[in-house]
Design a protein around this nucleic acid. Structure first.
Length: 148
DNA sequence: GCCAACGTTGGC
DNA sequence: GCCAACGTTGGC
């Protein structure tokens, strides 16, 4: 799961312990959060748009079933959606909990230059989604790179 | 800040 | 349903 560190970083999550992954306004991402994620799933936290620090920075866990994103009903929020109704909320998400901040960043550059990761959606052309599936093998490989 | 590669909106 | 215009994402 990606976030721009200026908006919400691994340090924010470490301090909060748990947060609602709100502000998702892309239908494909919403559908993934709704249908493909489950409580207990492990997730890598990725800092996007962070210059040389762009990459995987930590590990977290999904801790809820589907929850309604409250920001869609807040007219003062950037994520306000006037077309969404409380009876039929358009935007839903999940809660996540902090597990670990890695001792180092596994950078996008490393992932792009490692042929083992060539199949990851992250490095494929035109991939802009802020969540994407990751097989356990790839997850473990990325974590292992922080352990050296 | 630029721009490629999307996704969304709305007129028709 | 098409598609032009516009908005967003995110790497660089």
């Amino acid at each position: 799961m990606k976030s721009e560190p200026d908006a919400y970083s691994i340090d924010h999550l470490m301090k909060d312990g748990e947060t609602t992954w709100d502000g998702i306004r892309n239908y494909q991402v919403r559908n993934m959060l709704r249908d493909d994620f489950a409580a207990g799933d492990l997730v890598l936290f990725y800092h996007s748009n962070a210059g040389a620090h762009t990459g995987v920075v930590g590990k977290m866990k999904i801790t809820s079933d589907v929850v309604v994103d409250k920001l869609q009903f807040d007219p003062k929020s950037d994520y306000f959606d006037p077309k969404s109704t409380k009876d039929n909320p358009r935007w839903v998400t999940r809660k996540v909990a902090f597990l670990e901040k890695f001792p180092r960043v596994v950078t996008l550059l490393e992932i792009k230059t490692d042929s083992r990761f060539a199949h990851l959606p992250l490095v494929q052309k035109g991939s802009r989604l802020s969540t994407m599936p990751l097989k356990k093998l790839d997850f473990d490989r990325i974590v292992a790179m922080t352990r050296v």
